[in-house]
Computed example of a mutant assay.
Amino acid sequence: MSNFSFNEFEERVKDSLVRHKSILDIITKLQESTSKVNRAIVKSATACGCVQICASKQDIPNEISYSELSSFLDSHISGSLCENCRDVVETELGNHLFYVASLCNVLDVNFESIVKKEYDKIGALGKYSLL
């Protein structure tokens, strides 16, 4: 896959879109795929148990700088996805990317350009890119 490009992915998605050409179909399928990603992650904790999710208030000292913030934050997840759960999560994320690319196609927005812009923004702003 060393010659893979986002443009080729987007073109392949475009070629395979037959049933879901309408933006209404695409945005509802995108929302559905979001739910399936979430469900796959939750099932890895509740049905399989390969990961544990333990969420609680994150205690952040008032006097720290923004650059120090990440050292005080937790992902609330422990363990790692087993092979089966990883496969399900990766499949659902792949389906989700399919619908993101579909949305790009129908809106005539270049998927690779979006990824590149976000990549450049993160590179330039680092931790500050999501403020």
Results as ranks from 00 to 15, higher is better:
D25P: 12
N105K: 06
S113G: 12
R39G: 07
C48L: 00
E92R: 11
N62I: 06
D108A: 09
C54G: 07
C48F: 00
V109G: 04
A45L: 09
D74L: 15
R12M: 11
S44R: 13
I64H: 15
H76A: 14
D25H: 10
E112C: 06
D15V: 04
K29M: 15
I27Q: 02
V42K: 10
G94F: 05
S56V: 01
R12V: 05
E90L: 13
S33E: 04
T28F: 08
S102G: 05
Q58K: 11
Q31S: 06
L81A: 10
I114H: 02
V13E: 00
S70C: 07
L81P: 01
R86E: 04
E112G: 10
Q31M: 03
N62P: 00
C48E: 00
L81Q: 02
I27H: 05
L81S: 02
L30S: 11
K36S: 05
A45S: 11
S102Q: 01
C54A: 14
D74W: 09
E32V: 09
A40K: 10
A45Y: 07
V88L: 04
L24D: 11
I41V: 09
I53C: 09
A45H: 07
Y99V: 00
I114N: 01
C48Q: 00
T91N: 15
L93E: 01
C54R: 09
I23N: 10
Y99C: 03
L103I: 00
T34V: 07
V88A: 03
C54E: 12
I23H: 10
K14W: 05
D59Y: 06
E83D: 12
I26Y: 04
T28V: 08
D87C: 12
V88T: 03
L24P: 09
H20D: 05
N110A: 07
D108E: 07
T34W: 14
Q58W: 03
V42C: 13
L24Y: 10
R86T: 04
I23C: 06
R86F: 15
S35E: 12
E92Y: 13
Q58S: 11
V89F: 07
A47N: 09
L97Q: 05
S70V: 04
E90K: 08
V89H: 04
R12H: 12
Y99Q: 01
L24F: 12
S65E: 12
R19P: 04
E10R: 06
D87E: 09
N62A: 08
R39P: 15
L81T: 02
N84G: 13
R19N: 13
V13D: 00
D87L: 13
E90S: 11
E10T: 00
D108N: 13
R19W: 06
G49W: 10
P61A: 14
Y99W: 14
L30A: 04
S33H: 12
N84S: 11
I114W: 03
S44M: 05
L30G: 03
C104W: 01
S16T: 08
N62L: 13
V109Y: 10
I114E: 00
E32K: 14
L73V: 03
G94A: 14
R39F: 15
G79L: 11
I23A: 10
I64T: 06
I60G: 01
T46N: 14
E112A: 15
Q52E: 12
